[in-house]
Design a protein around this nucleic acid. Structure first.
Lengths: 128, 128, 128, 128
DNA sequence: GTGGTCTAGACCACG
DNA sequence: GTGGTCTAGACCACC
């Protein structure tokens, strides 16, 4: 489990953990039915408070990505066809791309960067 | 000036404004030397607090995108190569791509989405 | 015995079992003097922890609905008028109705839903 | 604002508050666009911790019932057609009705109780 | 053992 | 002023 947090980051710790676990799910390192490490273990490993992890797990549950069973740990939920509006996902993408343009990258360079980022997120070869 | 803010968004208003102005710069609608509208005018147009706009302008100044001249408003700064840490720009990109993967999009679909988003950001034809 | 549990439910498993048995009693499928299946059997059938079933049975005993006889299993208790505080039963009803109102149902629709739910709970014709 | 909490209740305080506010919305005492009292005020009034109220408000936001704007308080959200599966709402109703049957109430008495509970939730006369 | 809730108190971010 | 986050530590509920 390769989760890291940066206390100096503008993004709150609990969201960093949420994003980290989402990435692990996306790349297949965490699959449907697999158990997540316990709240206490993650808290100990990362050196953050128990509650902070609990909030992250709760968020993942609210998004339907994991099933938390009281007294029995958390497991990756069955992957549903996710009822998200595409518009919700486009906004952060647009913002990220804008930043790259302002940094002076050409379209070609940006697409290369996207491919570079995409590759490790597809390690397990389920490139649907 | 086509800036909009969504009070219901989870992103703070001042950042929505920062991103909006960045997009205008990226696509060439705002060019080096052009004056930004006054804090008061933007606040009035968008119906938000004066202070909120001031914070947004301050952020743009801190990033070196605009220069605020005391008593004379803000103008778009000369485009410098900017001292960017590439990692800083990659993180939001990675998060946005992760979300698209979790939504079930294939690599092909994601690259298409990136191209779609990139196009309007290059309206003015300066595809360096 | 038609009991089911849903591990993904937010309600704890032992309460799902308690509610399930209450429903069976309410509709007459379980009557005074009838024996409940053993803790072990239920646990095996549902694939849950032995202790979980024991807690459910304990709760039913505390509410006076079943009597647990040492070494001889549990049987449905004689139906007493029960010492109920009406307020205690009204609260969950009020919460459930509030949810229906927020979902946009009219009074007419809600009463229809109540009658619909009531019918199968009166299968055995003891509509006192 | 008539919110009460019972520390001895089995339901957690933050959910009691969520339910209380839902009831106020359902009966029209809180309408679209109205501001909720601040987290600090509610915490003071009820004598509970700030965080507890914050969690309740966050839950209401996650359910789309209120819009929380950082630094600017919380307001009742525009009432959307709620994308709930009716099955979700039927389960608590069924459980509540089961309890009433076990208490010995007849169908007639139960329907009377439902009408009794429904009346105060329709004070403002929008019985769609 | 697991996660859930609550407290007290601190500090930050937003408008 | 507002809400958001985090900590430390406690106690409870569940499996």
């Amino acid at each position: 489990m390769f989760l890291t947090v940066d206390a100096g980051d503008k993004q709150p710790i609990y969201l960093q953990i949420v994003d980290g676990i989402k990435a692990l799910i996306a790349c297949g390192q965490l699959r449907e039915g697999m158990a997540l490490p316990s709240v206490r273990q993650v808290a100990g490993d990362l050196g953050v408070n128990l509650n902070t992890i609990a909030v992250a797990y709760r968020q993942l549950q609210d998004e339907g990505l994991v099933t938390v069973r009281h007294g029995a740990g958390a497991v990756i939920a069955s992957r549903r066809p996710r009822d998200i509006q595409p518009g919700e996902l486009r906004k952060p993408l647009r913002t990220a791309l804008t930043q790259l343009i302002l940094a002076g990258l050409s379209d070609r360079e940006i697409l290369a960067a996207v491919r570079e980022e995409l590759a490790p997120l597809r390690q397990k070869g389920d490139s649907r």
